Amino acid sequence: MDPAQTQRNARSEVKRILVAVDTSPQSVRAAEYVRRMALPHARIRIVSVAENPRTLLPLGSMADAELQVARDELTRDAENAVARARSIFADAGIDVESEVIQPSRQGGYTANALIDAGAQWKADLLVVGARQHHGMLRWVEGTVSEYVTTEAPCSILVVPAGYEADIGPSPQRILFALDGSAASLSALHFGLRLARPESRLRAIYVVDRAVRLTDFVPIHVLQQAFIEEGHAALAAAASAFAELSNHAETVLVKTEPVNDDVPHTIVRDAERWHADLLVVGTHGRRGVARWLLGSVAARTARLARTPLLLARPT
């Protein structure tokens, strides 16, 4: 099979995209980003959660009549958000359906409602727009994020508020952040399904050189281990890229010796390279030091100003 055909087959596997929207401008940006992705055979389902007023206000602070007024207003907001998102896809030639979800009828929460919607529809990808530290990003950060990223039935694409570039045919420049784990390699293969024939591809592995007070292994020993692991990870990426016709590169990058870390280095590289999609694995840790460094993916999500694909292992 020729490389172009291989790429077309890989991309066609992302067939069901669930786009979660609210009334924020970030939701519009997220919908526009999906609209410009070259996935003509995909099905798009737009959902908005009419939040449960009982989860927004202290229990007992509102009478039943007031709760119903609040519930009606939240429902109208969700309906308007869905209508606005549908209009973005009006001339896209894509199969689009939509739904307003009412978790208040079951006394549920927004994150749980979204997870259930993805599972019931068997989504391949969940897309959200996010304000850093506010709004929908609560689904992918903090204590909620750990639950969502482990329980969500699919990968998550976050289009952050800080992404200010013009949205053209997307993605044109995809950056894959590898950490040597099977999860990050799986994320690379998932991200390649979204690549366009003309997309430029870049895989990086970050060698962590930053000295911390918690380090009890000499830093030069860790660096050498990272370098060896990085070469292996990048070789695997190069092998995957070799099957495609895209322009591709693999690069070993390094943190600064002090006051730096892996997430900041990934975000800097994405911005310097002008990536319009950053791909990380949600369950990966940092190889030989994974129990020291925690979740790189979660911290990258809080920092990134580039659309971020949190890819679940497949």
Rank of each mutant, 00 (worst) to 15 (best):
residue 157 L to W: 10
residue 33 Y to N: 00
residue 107 G to V: 01
residue 267 V to H: 15
residue 229 E to H: 11
residue 217 V to P: 01
residue 264 H to I: 02
residue 1 M to A: 09
residue 154 C to I: 04
residue 264 H to E: 13
residue 109 Y to P: 10
residue 73 E to P: 09
residue 271 E to V: 13
residue 138 R to D: 15
residue 171 P to I: 08
residue 93 G to K: 05
residue 70 A to E: 12
residue 74 L to N: 04
residue 144 V to F: 15
residue 224 Q to S: 12
residue 289 A to F: 13
residue 199 S to N: 01
residue 71 R to W: 06
residue 114 L to M: 11
residue 182 A to P: 04
residue 162 G to F: 10
residue 213 L to V: 15
residue 87 S to F: 07
residue 218 P to C: 04
residue 199 S to M: 04
residue 93 G to V: 12
residue 202 R to M: 11
residue 230 G to S: 02
residue 34 V to M: 03
residue 229 E to P: 04
residue 168 G to H: 01
residue 231 H to W: 04
residue 55 T to E: 14
residue 291 W to R: 15
residue 153 P to W: 00
residue 64 D to Q: 06
residue 166 D to P: 15
residue 311 A to W: 04
residue 302 R to E: 02
residue 179 D to F: 03
residue 95 D to M: 12
residue 126 L to I: 15
residue 118 G to S: 09
residue 14 V to G: 06
residue 39 L to N: 00
residue 91 D to H: 10
residue 162 G to C: 10
residue 288 V to P: 14
residue 211 V to N: 13
residue 284 G to T: 12
residue 51 E to Y: 00
residue 140 V to L: 08
residue 221 V to S: 02
residue 181 S to E: 07
residue 252 L to T: 03
residue 262 V to T: 11
residue 20 A to E: 06
residue 119 A to M: 06
residue 52 N to W: 03
residue 31 A to N: 02
residue 286 R to I: 12
residue 213 L to R: 08
residue 298 A to R: 11
residue 190 F to P: 08
residue 266 I to S: 12
residue 57 L to E: 00
residue 205 Y to F: 11
residue 104 S to W: 00
residue 268 R to S: 15
residue 13 E to Q: 01
residue 54 R to F: 08
residue 63 A to K: 06
residue 201 L to Y: 06
residue 306 T to R: 12
residue 217 V to T: 14
residue 297 A to S: 13
residue 209 R to P: 00
residue 80 N to P: 05
residue 7 Q to L: 06
residue 195 A to V: 00
residue 247 H to N: 14
residue 108 G to Q: 06
residue 115 I to L: 07
residue 261 D to R: 08
residue 92 A to W: 01
residue 234 L to G: 05
residue 92 A to D: 13
residue 208 D to P: 11
residue 185 L to P: 11
residue 161 A to Y: 10
residue 264 H to N: 14
residue 243 E to F: 10
residue 63 A to I: 09
residue 189 H to R: 09
residue 211 V to R: 13
residue 242 A to N: 10
residue 59 L to E: 07
residue 86 R to M: 08
residue 268 R to T: 12
residue 110 T to W: 09
residue 263 P to N: 07
residue 299 R to W: 09
residue 49 V to M: 08
residue 88 I to F: 02
residue 257 P to Y: 14
residue 76 R to M: 05
residue 28 V to Y: 06
residue 16 R to N: 03
residue 262 V to Q: 10
residue 214 T to D: 13
residue 33 Y to C: 11
residue 48 S to A: 11
residue 113 A to L: 03
residue 15 K to E: 14
residue 121 W to G: 08
residue 214 T to L: 11
residue 86 R to H: 09
residue 13 E to P: 00
residue 128 V to W: 02
residue 10 A to M: 01
